[in-house]
Design a protein around this nucleic acid. Structure first.
Length: 521
RNA sequence: GGGCCUCUAGCUCAACCGGCAGAGCAGCGGACUUUUAAUCCGCGGGUUGUGGGUUCGAGCCCCACGGGGCCCA
């Protein structure tokens, strides 16, 4: 985008000196470039000096590499056609003889096609220019007949070629991978050299498309609710804080869309979903990213049982749409079965079994803290009895769940937005879906009694005042919406990145195209 | 937050007990009209992540810091 140039000309000797010094420094920097980068810059300049544009606005292209492959499958070795095509692609592999050069071109979808340049067909000048100017990584365009080489490789035999984009940096060795650091820092390189990296992007897009299709078939509306919020609510998490210049107030990047989606349900939007980013100012590891894609959906007149069914349907349909089966192949080569109905178990009974003694919502905090100590779970002084139950359960049971499992009926204190259980006192109608030992989704029968909701949020606010920096503040506008009345409803939150992890067996940073990484030194 | 592993040429990696920093690919120059990680001849390419320390001598040992990965909390 062109900037308006400054109106004051920099003609003072001082400014000129500064400009000269900057130029000298830039020159020095160029000279200190590694040889391979310098050589490519020199080639670019040589092209310009010869009147050849290294970055033309457009180049001839009448067919993608895949289209050429499709239209000419099954030619015999040595067979030539009269079909002339113009193709373009990145040079990923080169072989040359004196009067004949071969290059492998790669298209954006990973399709490759061989290009041949023979002295007889392309001419002396164009062949010499090819050898002098083209490096691995350049994008080029070529026009010529489709033929099958003597060794049986489908090829375009060039009658002319032109530079499409001169690459100034060499590609990594094609037949090794990229290092883990290059993968996350330079995904653009990773995508060129590693087919698996391209596949993840496509799988992710297919999954999201499938989710949208499923929602569409259920008459759900897709909404977009605020990412910049004046209060952070809807989850137990530390928010990122930012500042609005226009309003001169602190704002939070959202930790969850929940409180706004529920306002929408109050307004009569009975079936709504949102797929968008959440931000949590917490640790980053192989299953947590500070920004992550979240799906939340709410349905009036549904409860947590129906929402569990909806969730299973969404995931199994996404698996079939994105990878072709509910039995998925993981990155380590093992298979994982997401098909059929999934196990359901209840938190307090399974924890009681694991500990060998009955644990109920009435079990005193002191006993739970002692059991945490015994099994090596760290206890924060501010943690409630319910929090300790969850910690113990995760440690003793959750981490070991391999097959997809719904864990039901959570402690009340840790679930301030969930309705109390219809028959079991002291617990709420909430489930977590565990897949391969991690939490993939959570579902509620949503709390809609505004008086109880106020009590729960005020209890949260007291925890916050006592130092719990994950506690929610009281959101008066949300409570006002609840007072207007939300129909009975079920709701679910599911991490999109985690869903990709479940379908592929990859770490979260491999499922996110451009994950947040620390700046290079 | 804690533990373990890792950082060497553009890329992927070597370098024995602390003793002249190397290979393949890539690059540069040359030969070659059917190659498929072509082949053959020749050449260049390094602040060993950063800063300290020990030592006659440090890529290697010690300390601190930074980046990445894995495991745990």
């Amino acid at each position: 985008m062109p900037e308006v140039p400054p109106t004051t000309p920099s003609s003072s000797p001082l400014a000129d000196d500064a400009v000269a010094a900057a130029e000298a420094e830039a020159q020095l920097e160029r000279e200190q470039l590694p040889e391979q980068l310098r050589v490519r810059r020199e080639k670019r300049q040589r092209l310009l000096d010869a009147g050849v544009e290294p970055y033309p606005i457009s180049v001839p292209r009448t067919a993608s590499l895949a289209e050429v492959r499709e239209a000419h499958a099954g030619l015999a070795a040595g067979e030539e056609t009269d079909v002339v095509v113009s193709i373009a692609g990145r040079v990923v592999f080169q072989r040359g003889t004196g009067k004949l050069a071969f290059a492998t071109l790669q298209d954006g979808d990973g399709t490759r096609l061989q290009l041949m340049l023979s002295l007889a067909e392309v001419g002396e000048e164009a062949l010499a220019a090819w050898k002098a100017d083209v490096d691995l990584g350049d994008v080029i365009s070529a026009t010529g007949r489709v033929i099958q080489s003597k060794r049986g490789e489908l090829s375009v035999l060039a009658s002319s070629w032109t530079m499409a984009t001169k690459a100034l940096r060499p590609l990594p060795v094609l037949h090794k991978g990229t290092s883990e650091e290059v993968r996350v820092r330079q995904r653009y390189v990773d995508l060129i050299v590693r087919p698996e990296a391209r596949a993840v992007v496509r799988t992710r897009a297919a999954v999201v498309k499938s989710l949208r299709n499923t929602f569409d078939s259920l008459d759900y509306l897709e909404l977009e609710t605020p990412m910049l919020q004046t209060l952070h609510g809807g989850a137990a998490a530390r928010p990122f804080v930012t500042h609005s210049n226009a309003f001169d107030i602190e704002l939070y990047l959202r930790i969850a869309p929940e409180l706004f989606l529920k306002r929408a349900v109050v307004g009569g939007l009975d079936r709504v979903f949102e797929i968008n980013r959440n931000f949590r100012n917490e640790g980053a590891d192989s299953s947590h990213s500070p920004e992550f894609a979240m799906l939340e959906f709410y349905e009036a007149y549904a409860d947590y049982d129906l929402m569990a069914e909806r969730t299973r349907n969404l995931i199994q349909t996404a698996a079939r749409d994105a990878v072709g089966s509910t039995t998925v192949l993981l990155a380590d080569g093992s298979e994982y079965d997401l098909g059929g109905t999934w196990a359901q178990l209840s938190m307090y009974p399974t924890l009681s079994e694991a500990l060998g003694e009955p644990i109920t919502p009435e079990t005193p905090r002191s006993l739970l803290a002692e059991r945490c100590d015994r099994v090596g779970v760290g206890v924060a002084p501010s943690a409630t009895a319910g929090k300790l139950v969850e910690e113990l359960w995760e440690h003793l049971v959750g981490d070991h769940l391999v097959a997809p499992t719904f864990v039901r009926d959570f402690p009340l204190e840790t679930s301030p937005l969930v309705k109390s259980h219809r028959s079991v006192p002291g617990v709420v109608e909430k489930w977590d879906l565990y897949v391969r030992g991690f939490e993939l989704a959570t579902g509620y029968s949503e709390l809609n009694d505004p008086v109880v909701q106020r009590e729960r949020l005020e209890a949260q606010a007291r925890l916050g005042a006592a130092g719990d920096d994950e506690a929610m503040p009281v959101d008066e506008d949300f409570l006002r919406a609840m007072e207007v009345g939300m129909p009975p409803a079920g709701g679910v939150g599911m991490g999109i990145d985690r869903l990709l992890m479940a379908l592929t067996g990859l770490g979260i940073r491999e499922t996110i195209l451009f994950p947040l990484v620390k700046p290079e030194a």
